[in-house]
């Protein structure tokens, strides 16, 4: 699966980038990510792979209008902080449309951000593994510092505050 996504990324990266010159804002997306299933141990794996670097995990939904309204702002934030480790997790439940995740993220300028989709089955258990006090509201964002300590907020992000948090992490 990992190999497949790398191959797909290679394939797309090899495509001629058409029209990008016409829109200076649309920086070429390096590696469009396909959404991988988010399981109970996914967050731990992400953090283990980061080896003490801070991580921003943003939970969003196509069915959540407040999420969709700020998605492009997350795109701008990732462009402004190219070194920040971001993870996006789509948390749409029943009636979800996983095929729309990648195109939506691409459009918001988030095509190269590591992307997950709520895994099969027991949503409560998967959510509990993320945060015991998370009641499933969206958007929801967890900020995990290098030492593993986590803070979280529900609702749209304050990107200025988020930038300050990131800056503090690298001090």
């Amino acid at each position: 699966m990992r190999l497949a996504s790398i191959l797909l990324a290679l394939f797309i990266a090899a495509m001629p980038i058409a029209g990008s010159a016409a829109s200076p804002e649309a920086a070429p997306e390096a590696a469009p990510q396909t959404a991988r299933p988010f399981e109970a141990d996914s967050l731990k794996q992400i953090l283990d792979a980061q080896k003490g670097r801070p991580v921003i995990v943003h939970f969003w939904g196509l069915t959540c209008s407040n999420c969709m309204a700020e998605l492009k702002d997350w795109g701008a934030f990732t462009r402004a902080h190219p070194d920040a480790m971001m993870v996006l997790v789509n948390w749409d439940q029943r009636g979800a449309r996983p095929a729309e995740i990648s195109p939506t993220l691409q459009k918001a300028g988030l095509g190269s951000v590591s992307s997950f989709v709520l895994g099969n089955g027991f949503e409560e258990k998967l959510r509990f593994a993320v945060g015991q006090d998370w009641m499933g509201e969206l958007p929801y964002t967890r900020l995990i510092a290098g030492d593993g300590s986590a803070t979280a907020f529900s609702g749209p992000a304050d990107f200025e505050q988020l930038g300050s948090w990131l800056a503090k992490q690298s001090q």
Partner: peptide
């Protein structure tokens, strides 16, 4: 780009 790996729901 496809979400070939995404699975979901009932």
């Amino acid at each position: 780009a496809h979400d070939a790996n995404a699975h979901h729901g009932a």
